[in-house]
Computed example of a mutant assay.
Amino acid sequence: MSDVILTNLLLVALCYLLGAVPAAAWVARARGVDIRTVGSGNSGATNVLRSLGKGPAAFVATFDIFKGVLAVTLARLAGLDHEWVALCGVMAVVGHNFSVFLRGRGGKGVATSFGTVVTLSPAIGFFAFVLAIFTMWLTRFVSAGSIIGAAAVLALLAFSYMVHLPPPWYGTAALTFLALLLIWQHRDNITRLTSGTERRLGDKA
């Protein structure tokens, strides 16, 4: 194995560990709460909001977004090829969703995915974010906004190919994977949304 590939793999592993840092679980633990046993059980900002309030949730959301931004930025600063940069961003989200610090559990990756997507493709990330926030405001369902945001990423990618201005293949692969992963992570929410049992923004755990 060449030194370049070894360095790249080490950075990919580092980005996974960065993403795996469970801010929600650690913030909750500092307040005497095991985030895995309250609300949805997810280690994410939405569950922190329902369990601990707006302040801790804002901190966790900002930290989780920063994980995605930092993973991509570190890879770029290290001079990695674009394909490896995209992989580092993806691995930060994978780390968040399946954290080694939480025995493979984690959050749903909304904030970290946003940080990664907006750093890899600012235009797609911005428009997806606007649609997600509008959906959350309109419906008061965080899950619905997250799913719509992920679907918007896929739609914008499809549109970019229709107008013959697609991102490079590695960008398409990374964004498609992240969008599909986010939708998959919300499969239980989709069931609750269709059955009318999903909790709205502001509901307490």
Rank of each mutant, 00 (worst) to 15 (best):
G32F: 11
F66A: 15
R103L: 12
T112E: 05
A61P: 11
S99C: 04
A57M: 06
F114T: 12
V60C: 11
K108F: 01
T62D: 05
W26D: 06
F66S: 15
R76Y: 11
I35L: 14
T116M: 08
I65S: 06
G39C: 02
V100W: 12
T112F: 05
R76W: 12
S99H: 03
T37Y: 11
G39Y: 00
F101T: 06
A86H: 08
G53N: 03
G44H: 07
G109T: 06
V100A: 13
T116R: 01
I35K: 00
V93A: 01
V100M: 13
V27I: 15
A86G: 08
V93R: 05
P56Y: 00
P56W: 05
V72L: 03
L74D: 09
W84E: 11
I35D: 04
V33C: 04
L74R: 05
G53R: 04
D81R: 12
S99F: 05
G32S: 10
N47D: 10
V69T: 10
T116E: 02
N97Y: 07
G107N: 08
A86C: 15
V94P: 09
A92T: 04
A25V: 01
V48Q: 00
G44C: 07
R105Q: 15
P56I: 04
A111P: 10
R105S: 15
N47G: 10
V85S: 03
G106N: 09
T116Q: 03
I124M: 07
A61F: 13
T46P: 14
G115Q: 08
A30C: 13
A28Q: 02
L80C: 06
V93K: 01
V27Q: 06
F114R: 03
V38A: 05
N47M: 09
F66E: 08
S113M: 13
H82V: 13
R103K: 15
T119G: 06
A123Q: 11
D64H: 06
A86N: 12
G107F: 04
L77C: 12
A58H: 08
T46G: 13
K108P: 05
R36Q: 15
T37V: 11
V27K: 01
T62R: 03
G125I: 04
V110L: 14
L70M: 14
V118S: 06
V69E: 04
N97K: 02
A28C: 12
L120I: 15
R103T: 09
H82F: 14
G106M: 09
G68R: 02
T73G: 03
R31S: 08
V118K: 02
R76K: 14
R36Y: 06
L80R: 00
G106Y: 09
V110F: 09
